[in-house]
Design a protein around this nucleic acid. Structure first.
Lengths: 254, 254
DNA sequence: AACACCGCGATTGTACACAATGGATGGTGG
DNA sequence: CCACCATCCATTGTGTACAATCGCGGTGTT
């Protein structure tokens, strides 16, 4: 999972072969965060050499991190052309949301059955962090923490494949929200999150699922996925044309 | 000792950088097939150097292929210890099947809505191939083709995230079937596949979902996932502990 | 004889060098 | 003046060398 990492790269360094193993995760997590918090705009080119320079590692590490990100759908890998931050089209966004409804419903039902008291406590803590972020005005961190809440919920469902899928969906959702969210109608979702936890703690499956579905509705309704987005968010609409022209058989993402 | 198997290298080698890009897929596909067709037993160690020799590529390529396979869940990557063929536990198998029911239901509903005539024709073709494999006694190929049928169905659902998830689930399911299937009660599933296609072609959503769920039941019932497996399939139960087993059966061609 | 420690071999992890690809650029011809 | 084409440059793809790590077997001690 993406823990809060150090200030950024201020790590051992040691020229080469420092902390083995975690290097990957550090780079991965930092790029991931940067994208979700919109410090990296959709369409931005992610040069291997530049990133290697920044993080003080070789391209080998960067390449692996980009590969992971591509598999999760937040980065687009174009053969021979490098990587860019993904910019989901409206159609892609719709597909992600459809899949998410499906998965969230199942996760909610399972979480009601399997969530432990400890997990519920952790969930409440996350909602607090989320609220703090928004009240602090840190929208990026808020979006990210909101996503991590849903990921934590997936863990409570105790189903490894679903967790993995949820991670991918949440990542993409966060990217979509960052890209399409209309206005700054505050992300009041943390309130819905709290109600959801209450229902889960009470082991009220029907209510929990109901709340989750409404939560999904609310997220949906905050986005400009309809026709209006054409005039409203021109950059987002066309950004996917700016970098990729060929429908290459990239196996990364079907 | 470094005998390179020819069947793979459709390319003239050309030292390096022949057909760039496809190298990955070739290696990936071959290992994948070998695992699903049980030519590589669960727990078998997958040495990077050995595989590189066999396929005539460097460890770089092998490593990427193993990484992909690990992400799909058919290979287990142990830091500093190398890769082994995954050997799903009974619990993991249950989780995969739970997730699959979920996804297959959704895919079926979507396929009923979106499948084109061409896709339906392709599905029928795949069922034919599958039947041929089983009648030819090629169980491994049959399992694989059966999986590919479900993957094709996912494509008809026109939802990229679901397709990606389904690929992972089908891979793991095939591995589980190969590992746990009881007796040799023939894989009659191709018959169920045909009925399913009929229902989809008739745009009968309820019937299609019903058939799919029964299909899942049948697959389930063929497996030894119950308590009896403890005594019945000792090797599978412990295989994840004896990964260092000697690869004495080197005669098995990849 | 059993346990613990230490060094060795094998294998993976990382960095780097070189080759190939694709886009950009400048020159030439219509 | 514009369009087309050949060359160049930047960036990615691949192979390979080297270093770190882990498991294992030998050796010494209690």
């Amino acid at each position: 999972m993406n823990e809060q990492l150090q200030p950024l790269k201020k790590q051992p360094r040691a020229g080469k072969a420092g902390r083995s193993g975690t290097q990957d995760d550090i780079v991965y997590a930092h790029i991931f965060e940067a994208i979700l918090e919109q410090r990296l705009a959709p369409g931005t080119k992610l040069s291997e050499e530049a990133l290697g320079e920044i993080f003080g590692v070789s391209r080998t590490i960067i390449r692996r991190a980009l590969s992971r990100l591509a598999h999760e759908g937040v980065v687009l890998l174009r053969p021979n052309r490098g990587a860019v931050v993904a910019s989901p089209s409206v159609e892609e966004a719709r597909q992600v949301f459809l899949a998410r409804r499906l998965v969230e419903r199942a996760i909610t039902e399972l979480a009601v059955q399997h969530a432990t008291a400890e997990q519920i406590a952790e969930l409440r803590q996350m909602v607090n962090d989320e609220r703090d972020s928004f009240s602090r005005g840190d929208r990026g961190a808020g979006i990210r923490l909101s996503g991590e809440f849903h990921l934590k919920l997936a863990e409570a469902a105790k189903n490894a494949p679903l967790i993995s899928f949820q991670r991918s969906l949440v990542s993409q959702t966060s990217l979509i929200i960052a890209q399409y969210e209309s206005g700054n109608r505050s992300h009041c979702s943390y309130d819905e999150h709290t109600q959801l936890i209450d229902a889960i703690e009470a082991r009220n499956g029907e209510l929990a699922v109901d709340l989750m579905m409404h939560h999904m509705d609310h997220i949906d309704s905050k986005l400009n996925l309809d026709e209006e987005s054409a005039s409203d968010d021109l950059h987002a609409v066309f950004s996917h044309l700016l970098q990729t022209k060929k429908p290459g058989r990239s196996t990364a993402k079907l």
